[in-house]
Simulated assay, not measured.
Amino acid sequence: MNKKHVEDVVSFCRSAVEPAIETVNHANVLSGEYISTTWLHYYDPESGYSVGVWEAGSFREAFISEQNEYCHLLEGVVRLTDSEGKSEDYSQGDSFVIPAGFDGVWENIVTVRKYFVIS
């Protein structure tokens, strides 16, 4: 491992990251206009590890999680529903991990802004 220094530390508040805005338009979008804004503060191409801030308005999307994802909601409400129809709501201040292999529906009830870590 290469030795790292303080200038290698990624500070979200000091980062000059430009947001990436994407309109997601595929068959898994079940309802709503899925437009996301992502500030990717750190990405390691070797491991696929990524960290940043994500925001999107109300929408529903069927998905299967291919990686583990940690989420901390800064604002909004998310409803996760699994393939058996069981659901949980998460709101501002909540943290949760979606394990790789989760099969279900992600729903933003209102606009959501979150920190994410994907590995």
Results as ranks from 00 to 15, higher is better:
2 N>Y: 15
4 K>S: 09
5 H>G: 05
5 H>K: 09
6 V>C: 06
7 E>F: 13
7 E>M: 12
10 V>W: 02
11 S>D: 10
12 F>Y: 11
13 C>L: 09
14 R>A: 08
14 R>G: 15
17 V>T: 12
18 E>W: 15
18 E>Q: 09
19 P>C: 04
19 P>A: 10
20 A>W: 09
20 A>Q: 11
22 E>G: 06
24 V>E: 08
25 N>T: 15
26 H>G: 07
26 H>N: 11
27 A>S: 15
27 A>R: 05
28 N>A: 13
29 V>N: 09
30 L>S: 04
30 L>M: 13
32 G>V: 01
33 E>L: 15
33 E>S: 14
34 Y>A: 11
34 Y>C: 15
36 S>L: 11
37 T>L: 08
37 T>K: 04
41 H>I: 03
42 Y>N: 12
43 Y>P: 11
43 Y>Q: 11
43 Y>S: 14
44 D>E: 11
48 G>T: 14
48 G>L: 04
49 Y>H: 07
49 Y>S: 08
50 S>F: 03
51 V>L: 06
51 V>Q: 07
53 V>K: 07
54 W>T: 00
56 A>C: 14
57 G>C: 10
57 G>S: 11
58 S>K: 14
59 F>S: 11
62 A>P: 06
63 F>L: 02
63 F>T: 04
64 I>C: 07
65 S>A: 10
66 E>Y: 04
69 E>H: 02
70 Y>G: 14
74 L>S: 02
74 L>Y: 06
75 E>P: 07
76 G>K: 00
76 G>W: 00
77 V>P: 02
79 R>K: 02
81 T>C: 01
81 T>V: 03
83 S>K: 02
84 E>T: 06
87 S>A: 06
89 D>T: 01
90 Y>I: 00
91 S>C: 14
92 Q>E: 12
94 D>G: 00
95 S>Y: 02
96 F>H: 01
100 A>D: 12
100 A>Q: 12
100 A>F: 09
100 A>E: 05
101 G>F: 07
102 F>D: 12
103 D>S: 15
106 W>Y: 09
106 W>P: 13
107 E>L: 01
108 N>E: 07
108 N>Q: 01
109 I>R: 02
109 I>Q: 07
111 T>R: 15
113 R>F: 00
114 K>Q: 04
115 Y>L: 07
117 V>S: 12
118 I>E: 05
